[in-house]
Structures are given as structure tokens and as C-alpha cells.
Computed example of a mutant assay.
Amino acid sequence: MKKLYARMMKAECPIDPATMETTVPFLQHNTVEHALKDSGVRQIFFFVDPKDSAIFSITIYDTEEDLSNAMQEATSEFRFQSLAALGCTAVDARVFEVVAGQVNPDAPEVDFKSLVPPITTD
């Protein structure tokens, strides 16, 4: 069985309707695009927890080496500048081995790019 690896990153961010209007497009059209350039990336998802003003990202990688290389991004200037632009602060970055799961073959594919409006500039 092929193993997969995951990176989870957490940031504290202002989460309200006004900030989400700019944060979500930035994540989708800037951060996601940047992360997908890493070697061995399979998927990336962002999760918002309004109860504790947290945004989590989970990125799945093909190999442990891909994950190790990607963890360098967890402390990169790009990450900290991107978070600061959103008014966010980095909290945590962790690595995981994916041990169980499956994609439901009947699950409809979600095209996030078409659901999230482009980044607007003032």
C-alpha cells in the first residue's frame, strides 16, 4: 500500500463576513496556486473555524521527502507575508502520515475556482 503524507498548518485570522470576502479569494487564487507548485502535492484544502478565529490548511503529499521539502515553506517569508497581508498570524505547522481514508467515487467534484470570486484590489 502506498503511503501518503500530510502537512497541517494553522493560523489565527479575523473571521467575519467582511474579512472572509478578501481572505477566501486570496487563499484560493494566491495561496492554493502557490502550494500546488510544490513537488508531490496531491490536494490542498483550507478550513475555517469561526469559533476560535482559526484557518487550517491540510496539504497531501506523495512522499515523505515531498512533505519534508514542503515543511520548509512553513517557515518561509512567503507564508508569513501572505498571512500578514490577511491580518493573520501563524500558529502551528505539523506533519502527519495518512493512515486511512478513501474518496467516495460518487462524490461530485467541487470546482473551488469557479465558486470563489477573483481577488479584488481597492
Rank of each mutant, 00 (worst) to 15 (best):
G40T: 01
K3R: 13
P17T: 05
P105V: 11
T75L: 06
S68W: 13
T121M: 14
Y61E: 06
F78L: 09
F78N: 09
A100F: 15
D106M: 15
A70Q: 04
L36I: 09
T89N: 08
E21H: 12
F47D: 01
F112Q: 07
F47Y: 13
P50I: 05
A35L: 15
F112L: 09
R94C: 00
Q72D: 09
A35E: 08
F45C: 12
A100L: 14
V116H: 03
F56P: 00
R7I: 15
D66A: 10
T22A: 15
H29T: 03
E97P: 02
D66F: 01
V95D: 06
A85S: 15
I44A: 08
A74P: 00
E12S: 11
A6K: 03
E21D: 14
T59Y: 00
I55Y: 04
A107S: 11
I44H: 05
V116D: 03
K2E: 15
C13L: 12
T22W: 07
E33M: 07
N30S: 10
D16R: 07
F46A: 11
A11T: 10
A85E: 10
F26W: 12
D16A: 07
T75P: 02
D38L: 10
C88M: 02
K3Y: 06
T31M: 14
A93P: 00
V24R: 06
C13D: 09
V48I: 14
F45D: 08
I119C: 02
